[in-house]
Write a protein that binds this DNA or RNA. Structure first.
Lengths: 213, 213
DNA sequence: GCTTTATAACTGACCGGTCAGTCATTTCTC
DNA sequence: GAGAAATGACTGACCGGTCAGTTATAAAGC
């Protein structure tokens, strides 16, 4: 029995998985263009190159499709985030730079920021999904950020500052950038590289000069 | 001829204006609960205590109603912002404190932040409205912020930093807070007073201690 | 003051388009 | 040819928008 060739069953499953991914990709495209409520499943089907009925072979409902889109987009990010957390090294400032760079790369850049906007827009209609996003992305990101800050305070790099709200404050710049990119970018472009650099500088250095009074 | 009593015509107009405001208030409520696309005009009518047909005596379409809701919410803020701009005094740091406090009071607090979320959610479907929001709120706010920063640099309070992107970075914390308040607040409360204080501290002071190397 | 007339405000049943979801039929694969 | 996969015509609930008819308010005529 040849091990290298896939069995018919394997190919069938692989094809099915591919279909599923195509559908999710198409759905993300359509949702990001017009929002969940206005999105038509016919459009999703067309973009995926199948008929509408096929969607229902893979997902129970439009809502279920939406939830799968979000979960599928987020899960890989979690894993990467986990991996990064385990290789802490360097100064706290460097850690924070890495952390924010990671956010800009994975959360603010192209595909993922769409998910953020969809959660903001549809969150109230999908409590379970909102909670999932909170647990998966926000809480985790905030915990990581808080740990870096605490480490920096410990080493004397950072000054002692307010508690829980600080982490969100540190990440806020990236959130705003992700939103800008989707809502205003077409007419009022924002250079994300420059912006993120400013963000990091501002957070690390602060606006005020060091006045030694 | 008694001047103090309103004529019949005056009362009629006042009533009409009141109706209009009731409808806008009801629409804002419904839109903020379920978003524009999912909102039913029957619900808006019921909440305003009129029938659906009445809505069309005041607004041309659902879209027009939405646009009026947004504009009505924003215009008073512009005027207040204008007024504040003209009474510049104190240090740049104080100005910035005032500016951010104003944002938290007028943009992040109760009713107005809903508009921000609606723009984020529906913006792509309403280019004209998005542009209006940009011009009315964002551009104006950013210009004011930039001017304060420039003033601070001039007086030597602030260090020289990157240009256009800085203002947005300074305001980002408030944007994130406004979003949080609507999407996650019910399950994961955020103390806005503490948060805004941290925001101002962070922006003004920066994370890093003054290391004189 | 009372009745009639005019007008503005409002109503809610109705219409027509839209679209999520279904299912009998066809196509593909082995 | 058996069974899985895919199709797309079809259904029916839904909802934005309309409009013929009703009510409220005010002005005009006596």
């Amino acid at each position: 029995m040849p091990v290298q060739s896939l069995s018919a069953e394997d190919r069938r499953l692989a094809h099915k998985e591919q279909r599923r991914e195509d559908l999710i990709k198409a759905a993300l495209d359509v949702f990001s263009r017009v929002g969940f409520a206005s999105a038509k499943l016919d459009d999703v089907a067309e973009e995926a190159g199948v008929s509408k009925g096929t969607i229902y072979l893979y997902f129970d409902s439009k809502e279920a499709l939406f939830e799968d889109v979000v979960r599928t987009q987020l899960l890989p990010v979690i894993e990467q985030a986990e991996a990064r957390l385990s290789q802490f090294q360097g100064s706290a400032a460097d850690m924070l730079r890495q952390q924010l760079a990671f956010m800009y790369n994975k959360v603010v850049s192209e595909d993922r920021r769409v998910v953020m906007r969809l959660i903001i827009a549809e969150g109230p209609n999908f409590p379970a999904l909102t909670e999932f996003y909170y647990k998966t992305v926000l809480a985790r990101g905030m915990t990581a950020t808080r740990k870096i800050i605490e480490y920096g305070v410990q080493t004397g790099e950072f000054r002692q500052m307010g508690g829980d709200t600080l982490a969100l404050n540190v990440m806020a710049g990236a959130v705003a950038a992700g939103i800008w990119a989707q809502v205003f970018q077409p007419h009022h472009p924002l250079d994300l590289d420059v912006y993120s650099q400013t963000h990091i500088d501002l957070i690390l250095g602060g606006l005020c000069v060091r006045n030694e009074d």
